[in-house]
Write a protein that binds this DNA or RNA. Structure first.
Lengths: 189, 189
DNA sequence: TGAAGTAGCTATGGTCAATAGCTTAGGATG
DNA sequence: CATCCTAAGCTATTGACCATAGCTACTTCA
């Protein structure tokens, strides 16, 4: 039997995620992570291949948490798909505000970073499920993608500060959500 | 009169942009840029404060080029706003495919990076102009933002490889564009 | 008690950002 | 023409960080 782990991989990833949010992508150094875990930097390489690997783990953990949040928002069991979609996107917005740096990591992953397809699947499944309930929509996949595109674009714009005043954000959100729902519920003319 | 510049700032930024696309964000080192320009690394600091500054210049140059492309796509002088919007988004998609790394830089700028508001303004103005011509739409700003959100989200998804097969991309694009145009041309009920 | 495996450490090498200080070229000025 | 002076570029250096090598000590199991 192997020796029980003193410093678990989960602990390292958690420290790395916190550090990413507090110090940015540049501040996410092996030394800083190690210090936060209470260990010296080289010890991390017993659990992680290199820094890129750690960043990938951070990205995947973040993506999975986003998926869980969206999933939780989807399981509210009310009939109105519009409200369900609104909750889904709000879950994404809240998450992006809580972990902006992590969100950026999964929003625009570098060429080197490969997100786990299973995690992506899990995160996008709820939208697909709700979209399937949209009245009059037969092209469910395309509808879900259109909605997801708007939602991610909106959140990324909000994150980048594209909306100056706070009130404008909500107005723009309600507007976009309303129009998207109309557009996707009404069959192509 | 000052001595004429041997190595211009434009030359440096151009080299940095090319390097960003060929070697990624990590490969964009001062040494690599200097070597490409035909100079030693410390000499760059005569033109640029630090690496972050150079990245900001790269981002701004990329954003301005995107703006110019979108602007060019908008000045086609045909009456159909739908075709105009299609050309706008296609210009963005083409650009994102040509300079994916640069596009990511302006899509999800890090917390440290501040994009020039004027450049952002110039890049988003064409959409606003076309949106203003949409029949029956009075909330022009919100409409433009909704459209822009969908477009950026779509491009970022395409860039991240969210669409498996090539054909699916075009189908999803046509679908989303069609629905968005319908949604934004029809006044809220 | 002895063997084995493993967590963590120190020491080290290599890359890169950034600064200090020097050298030199080339125009401006007398 | 001689001189100055600005600025471009260089070498040398420091400090941060990633990553590996190799050692020590502890835990578990026979």
């Amino acid at each position: 039997m192997p020796t029980p782990e003193r410093t678990s991989l989960e602990e390292i990833v958690r420290a790395a995620r916190d550090l990413l949010e507090s110090s940015g992508h540049e501040g996410l150094t092996m030394q800083a992570v190690a210090h936060r875990v209470g260990v010296r930097a080289p010890s991390l390489y017993k659990r992680v291949r290199n820094r890129g690997d750690l960043v990938a783990l951070v990205a995947d953990a973040t993506l999975r948490e986003l998926g869980a949040r969206v999933e939780a928002a989807a399981t509210h069991a009310d009939d109105d798909p519009r409200l369900a979609l609104a909750r889904l996107v709000r879950a994404g917005r809240d998450f992006a505000r809580e972990r902006p740096a992590g969100f950026r990591l999964i929003l625009a992953p570098g060429t080197d970073l490969r997100l786990d397809p299973a995690s992506l699947e899990a995160a996008s499944a709820p939208v697909l499920r709700v979209a399937a309930r949209l009245a009059g929509e037969e092209r469910v996949l395309d509808a879900a993608r259109t909605f997801t595109a708007w939602a991610t674009g909106f959140v990324s714009m909000e994150l980048a500060g594209a909306f100056r005043l706070g009130g404008e954000v909500e107005r723009a959100f309600e507007f976009g959500l309303d129009r998207l729902c109309h557009a996707l519920a009404i069959p192509a003319s």
